[in-house]
């Protein structure tokens, strides 16, 4: 249950993220294609007891004060900063003593990501993660699995289209807030076409060159340059951050559905919609999530790392749609 999106109105990056998480595992080293779902029969407890104790930080070799005045210092809590500082120092591995003078870590693996290890709420987050994992094992995964096996694909796609169509206002507002007129226009056209011809149950627009996009306010804040703040695992909803949790709340207020669905009946409707969204999302990432976790030594950290990378990638792609890899966004690509 990790990328979980029950309730989440349009935090579609989480959906997308969790869907794609497994791609990494699937593909890594190439051939995920033929690997089926995996349920690692691990005798090792998923969370060693020590994980719940306050995880000790790396040695504090640089204090926050030494970094004061840098933009980083302004943005980060003290604990996170020292952690980053320690990491940054440790990352400076370009010395020739290690026998590889051309090794340039930042150039090879990408700048600015290496030190992304701040998690000031780790203890609490791990607890929530374990709780979510239990909920997932007991309820969500079985329900999502049954949904996937019992409901025909056509119907599942119709439900997904309908839910996406329902999320149009929030997406549209965020497209506009991001100053992305082109996407906003596509979103509006999609709504018009799909609502007119199928009440939203069928995506007629996609084949017409009007692809779905999934803007949300957390992402909007990201495109404004806001960092994640800190990593936060939400109960039931799964991986998020200060920025993206704020985004979720704002999106709820931006959504006309929130106001239209008033009273007890409306609340039921809202809940139903959220549950359906969660089940739909989960049913689409069963295999990929199983894959991503299959060989993890520390599930919590693996999911945290993947969620952050995918979320960041998603924000970057909003800014530059041609960015499909860390460096594919600029300069010419040679095609064969």
């Amino acid at each position: 249950m990790l990328g979980l999106t029950i309730s989440a109105r349009s935090d579609c990056a989480a959906v997308r993220g969790s869907r794609s998480i497994g791609l990494l595992a699937a593909v890594v080293l190439a051939l995920g294609a033929c690997a089926g779902p995996q349920a690692p029969d691990s005798a090792e407890p998923r969370f060693p007891r020590s994980a719940f104790l306050a995880a000790p930080l790396p040695d504090r070799e640089l204090s926050a004060t030494q970094l004061s005045g840098t933009p980083v210092a302004a943005a980060l809590p003290d604990r996170m900063l020292t952690q980053r500082a320690a990491l940054a120092q440790g990352d400076d591995l370009g010395d020739e003593a290690l026998g590889d003078p051309d090794y340039d870590e930042e150039a090879i693996f990408g700048a600015g990501e290496a030190g992304n290890d701040g998690d000031p709420l780790e203890t609490l987050n791990r607890f929530t993660f374990a709780f979510n994992d239990m909920l997932d094992t007991l309820f969500l995964r079985p329900v999502a699995f049954t949904y996937r096996e019992a409901v025909p694909l056509g119907l599942r796609n119709a439900i997904q289209s309908f839910l996406r169509n329902l999320a149009t206002p929030v997406i549209l507002i965020n497209d506009l807030l991001q100053g992305d007129g082109e996407r906003a226009l596509i979103t509006a056209k999609r709504f018009f076409v799909n609502t007119t011809f199928s009440l939203g149950f069928y995506d007629y627009a996609e084949p017409e060159g009007l692809p779905y996009n999934d803007a949300d306010f957390g992402q909007t804040l990201g495109t404004y340059g806001a960092g994640e703040g800190f990593y936060l695992v939400l109960p039931v909803l799964g991986p998020s951050s200060l920025r993206d949790t704020t985004g979720r709340i704002v999106d709820t207020f931006l959504d006309p559905f929130t106001y239209a669905a008033g009273g007890p009946q409306g609340r039921d409707l809202s809940t139903g919609r959220s549950v359906l969204e969660g089940v739909d999302a989960r049913s689409r990432n069963i295999d990929s999530l199983d894959q991503a976790r299959a060989d993890a030594l520390d599930d919590y950290v693996r999911i945290r790392s993947l969620w952050r990378q995918l979320r960041q990638d998603h924000i970057l792609k909003r800014e530059d749609p041609s960015a499909t890899g860390p460096d594919f966004g600029s300069g010419p690509i040679r095609q064969f």
């Binding site: 990494l24 890594v28 992304n116 520390d298 993947l306 990378q309």
Partner: peptide, 25 residues
């Protein structure tokens, strides 16, 4: 080959963060 990315997620970076946690524990 130094790294493989799928959908923006790097294998090397993911393992690095995971192993850092294991090394702490």
């Amino acid at each position: 080959i130094l790294d493989i990315r799928a959908e923006g997620a790097s294998m090397a970076l993911t393992l690095r963060e995971e192993y850092a946690s294991v090394m702490r524990q």
